[in-house]
Simulated assay, not measured.
Amino acid sequence: MTRKIGVAIIGLGPASLPHSHSLIDLAERVDVRWAVSRSAERAEAYRKQFPFAVTTDLEAVLADPTVEAAIVLTPPSSHLDVSARCFENGKHVLVEKPLELTVARGETLVEAARRAGKVFGVVLQHRLRPASLRLKAALAAGELGTVEAAFLSVPWWRPQAYYDEPGRGTLARDGGGVLLTQAIHSLDLFRSLVGVSRVVAAQARTTKLHRMESEDFASALLELGNGAPGTLMTTTAAYPGHPERIEIIGTQGFATLIGGTLSLSFLDGRKEVVEAEGSTGSGANIMDFPHDAHRAVIADFLEAVSTGRDPVVTGNEALASQRLVDDILAAARR
């Protein structure tokens, strides 16, 4: 049996739910030593739901030698500070998306991980869905031929009540709007599949459906990694919320990835479908999705810690996707 790795969960907001369920599933591989929140009320609510030791004393957790790794689920504005303290205390870190508020802070975080010599992963779980892995393998093997064009659409919905929560949709807490907070999962997957070499033109705005500081709509014309054209549209104003969609036109076939379901249609008449169950969190209930992909991310991270290899989504990979968000917003301002 693989040695169990001692882990602490830091941050017990909504994001802790799929991670906690995943850690229960992975009980043979992980020993959850602590779950930490600075809020006593939130810690008590969590204690009633999950079988892990709960505390509000982060310092004690960081000093605990049985904690080898931390899963950081605090707001984006605190990722650098909390993760850096984990590195200073000899912990490996898996941090929730987005990497940080800004590219500059993200670069500082990635450098801190490099200096510490610790495994550093980012929770961009769409890459580890079975359909995503199959599509990536098909592209790598040339099954679709040469990519001639690709499209990304994220027509999600968030009610105003979501943005009325303190800090939601602000630059100070979230670092941005739909691109960085909601669509980052699909944008990161899209970039990992077909590459993006340039943002040709873009638009970004806040629609009349929301009162918020950052954008709830963004679109862009892109140049893919091989020079082919691409387009992108993301929003949280598409009621009641619809699954994200990636489409890829190849010289030998066409791929459609809707949520976690993949359809491949080849010019020689062959077809293939990889089915997925469950929603994608595209509507008002932000946690309306299965935790399978989160479990895969954590399992990959644990394997990386055990073997010393990089996780699937490294800090540098997350940083590249955050730079793309910045490039889209910069093009929109122009």
Rank of each mutant, 00 (worst) to 15 (best):
A150T: 00
A204N: 09
D327W: 05
E107L: 04
E215I: 06
D288I: 05
R211H: 15
R129H: 09
R245F: 14
Q125M: 08
D268G: 12
Q49A: 15
S186I: 03
L302V: 01
R270D: 00
A304Q: 02
V194Q: 05
E88Y: 11
E111N: 06
H19I: 08
E59H: 11
A43E: 07
H21Q: 15
K48F: 01
R114E: 11
P18K: 04
T170N: 08
A45F: 13
S219Q: 13
A149N: 08
R173K: 13
Q203K: 15
I249V: 13
P65V: 07
K136L: 00
I286L: 12
I10F: 08
P229R: 06
I10M: 04
R309P: 08
V313W: 06
A113D: 02
M1G: 14
S153Y: 06
G308C: 06
A35S: 12
A70V: 15
R114D: 12
Y46I: 11
L101E: 07
S192P: 01
A237T: 03
S78H: 15
R191K: 12
F50V: 02
A202E: 10
G142R: 00
R114S: 07
L171Y: 14
L232I: 08
L144A: 04
S16W: 08
E107C: 02
L264D: 03
W34P: 10
A140V: 07
V196C: 06
G260S: 15
H210Y: 07
E244M: 12
D57V: 07
A284F: 10
F301Q: 01
S265D: 14
A40M: 12
F52Q: 09
S77Y: 15
M233W: 10
E59Y: 00
G175Q: 10
A161F: 02
V122G: 07
K271T: 14
G121T: 00
W34N: 05
R105W: 14
D174Y: 15
D216H: 09
L193M: 00
V103G: 06
L187N: 01
T74V: 15
V119C: 08
G90V: 02
V123G: 11
A60I: 06
G167W: 02
L267V: 10
R115C: 03
A276C: 04
S20E: 03
S16N: 07
A141N: 10
H21F: 13
F190K: 00
H126D: 09
Y163R: 06
V93T: 01
A113V: 09
G195V: 05
V313L: 00
D268I: 01
L152K: 01
D300V: 06
T146W: 07
R3A: 14
S132L: 00
D57C: 01
S282R: 11
M233F: 15
L222C: 10
L222A: 04
D31L: 01
A104V: 07
R33G: 03
G259S: 05
V82F: 10
L329P: 12
V95F: 03
D174S: 00
Q182V: 13
I71W: 04
L135K: 03
E41D: 12
G177I: 04
G227W: 08
